[in-house]
Design a protein around this nucleic acid. Structure first.
Lengths: 204, 204
DNA sequence: CGAGAAAATCTAGCGCTGCTAGTGATGAGA
DNA sequence: TCTCATCACTAGCAGCGCTAGATTTTCTCG
């Protein structure tokens, strides 16, 4: 009796938790889709609620506020970027560094809103050493792996930060239309050359 | 008579235009100050109007909207950055590239809100070849001048874009707390080294 | 099966935002 | 001094993030 009751209670709770988790993800997906389609300005709690076919307060039973939703989108975006970078293997004659750079920039170009949430909009994601989401570490780890072959004697982590910063700068300035499209190719060539040549120097 | 009347009318018009111009600048300054003190979120048309001691609609008789005010702040910020870069002369044993990089990063660090308006927030400032504000050209010109000594055989404009992008990436990622402060020095050393070493290579 | 408890969801509204239409005061010119 | 244009204001709109309280739905148990 009590056992059956408890069992029944547990399964119902399980179903509820499952449905809750599904809706949680539904909200994240809807926010990301809406942002990618019309920009983050269009992502209002009202429109988002309408899109998931619930009323506004439901959003707040899942997330502390709009910022938390954006943060969730950003973190999942980091996971996606990490996956893309891991998949980006250099084709013949291409350096791993270049493959990673091109994958990174293509991600930023094809998902500008997602990229914005991840690296442009300020958020209270803990980037300091404590409690960094795993997705972030994964993405950065992929960059580290791409930089490693050209590190030479240089500090690997700092060099990766330079690589990342350069890519990030290029991505955001391009997105804002602040760089000349004419130089797109040359720019990347120069960056990769600069970062790699130092190794030649070391090797001599 | 008619001449005196016309004369009087002209001076009155002059005074009005002068007062208008002063108030125009007053609004820009107030917006910049408020943004630097409390961030752009705190810059609302109401607070801004209160600060300049006029009612809201006055703002709209000077600017098309809030975006236009931010844009005006951004453009003047570019002028300031250009001035700072021009003033940044390398100390003994320091490359001009390093002097420019340090001046740029210090500007971004000390005036984060201003920097944001200039290079982070998307605006419809025409960065394409047509009608770019002179302040922008000046600032970029200073960067070009700093890069020139290390260009080697490389495309000067593209190389400057790489330099700028890297600085911009470092500035924004630092501001967002996404880079480790431990590497601040090393990071810049690595970047400058990478951009300069290629010249050595060319020189060999 | 039906009553009561519990949980989930909605309606309505607060104070804020950027922005503007229409009103009233101020000062120049005849 | 009177007229009129210019200027700046008050008041208000629609939409924002967010939340308190009412309401509906769902589950438990006699």
């Amino acid at each position: 009796m009590s056992s059956s009751a408890r069992f029944s209670g547990v399964t119902i709770q399980n179903r509820r938790e499952r449905e809750r988790a599904e809706r949680h993800q539904l909200i994240i997906d809807a926010a990301r889709d809406l942002a990618e389609a019309e920009g983050w300005d269009a992502v209002t709690t009202r429109r988002l609620a309408e899109k998931v076919e619930y009323s506004q307060p439901v959003l707040y039973s899942h997330f502390k506020g709009k910022d938390a939703i954006v943060r969730a989108v950003a973190i999942q975006g980091c996971g996606e970027l990490a996956r893309l970078l891991r998949k980006a293997r250099p084709s013949r004659g291409e350096s791993r560094l270049r493959a990673a750079a091109e994958a990174y920039l293509e991600f930023a170009r094809r998902r500008p809103a997602l990229y914005d949430a991840m690296f442009v909009q300020q958020s209270d994601i803990p980037w300091g050493t404590d409690e960094v989401p795993q997705e972030l570490l994964d993405a950065f780890g992929e960059l580290v792996a791409a930089v490693e072959p050209v590190r030479g004697e240089r500090d690997l982590e700092a060099l990766t930060e330079v690589f990342w910063s350069s890519l990030h700068g290029i991505a955001t300035l391009m997105q804002g239309g602040r760089l000349r499209p004419v130089h797109d190719e040359t720019r990347l060539d120069l960056l990769l050359g600069a970062l790699s040549l130092a190794q030649h120097e070391d090797g001599l």
